[in-house]
Computed example of a mutant assay.
Amino acid sequence: MNGTHRRDPDDAVRAWRGLADTSVLLDGFHAIKHALRFGAGIPSVLTSDRAAVLALADELAPDVKDALDTLLVQVPDNTLRALVPRLHPTGVAALAVRPSRRANLEALARMPRSAPVVVLDDPRNLGNAGAVIRLAAGFGATGVVTTGTLDPWHPTVVRGGAGLHFATAVERMDVGALPPGPVFALDAEGEDIRGLKLPDGAVLAFGSERSGLSERLRARADHLVSLPMRPQVSSYNLATSVGMTLFHWSADRPPGAEA
């Protein structure tokens, strides 16, 4: 559109305030870039420097520049910071429509699957959850499920996921309602993962950072699996464990294969 029909800044701010409580905040250029690439519905994008954001798109993500040009509205810097107090250094923020729970559950339940589902059993750290979603999207996992109280769509999780919630199915579920498929649960006493082949339809379960696998998840597991670890080292970071496990799964796939 090249700005021919740009929205009025005051209208854009009013629309933002009306949508903020029911939308997902995408804070920063990279989150918006990923969300646009994976089909997120984005009704509003605000910045205090339109030219700088479009120049960044031209440099780093020309594939989304036209979409940004259509959506982007410039507002005063103090107005933007009042709406987004922890504004990303790239100086742009957007609101996106959260995918429906029904659509996510259908994607997670669909069989056969071409890639595993990652389950975080009662995670406690919002940043860790975001990092796992970013990893899962990068490996083409079918989705990420959390059990317990943590909301995987919390703004801090979305920030850590860099907009890649829209590249995979992300939902909170009860242990008793996990997606179908054999459950491979990570546990220090399990069988060494290097001797196993993880099927595409696997459900890969990881315990919480504090207490490991819950008894309910352990009882649900078909296999207990361990990662190689030097003696006297107690554990890996949660996202590191997920990354190692997904890499092991992906290593059995032919080069260039996509989930």
Rank of each mutant, 00 (worst) to 15 (best):
V73M: 02
A177T: 13
A137D: 09
A15V: 12
L95D: 01
S208L: 00
D49I: 07
A35S: 15
S211A: 14
G91C: 11
T47H: 08
L108W: 01
E215Q: 15
G181H: 03
A96K: 00
V97L: 11
D21W: 01
A115W: 01
K197G: 08
D11G: 13
L246K: 02
L46T: 03
P255Q: 06
L54S: 12
I42Y: 04
L19T: 06
I193E: 03
L196D: 04
V53D: 01
H154S: 09
A131N: 12
E215R: 15
P112S: 08
G127L: 07
A52L: 07
R159S: 13
D192W: 04
V183K: 01
A129Y: 03
R194L: 11
G160C: 11
L126N: 02
G207K: 05
G243V: 04
P99A: 10
S250A: 15
S114N: 09
M244I: 14
L83F: 07
T168W: 02
G176A: 15
P123M: 08
L224S: 02
F184A: 06
T168V: 14
A15W: 08
E215V: 14
V132Q: 00
A251M: 14
A221Q: 06
G138T: 06
D21S: 14
D122T: 12
R102Q: 11
G140H: 01
V203M: 00
H223Y: 10
V84K: 04
G163A: 07
V117H: 00
H223D: 06
F166E: 12
H248T: 06
F184T: 03
A107S: 12
A57S: 13
I193F: 02
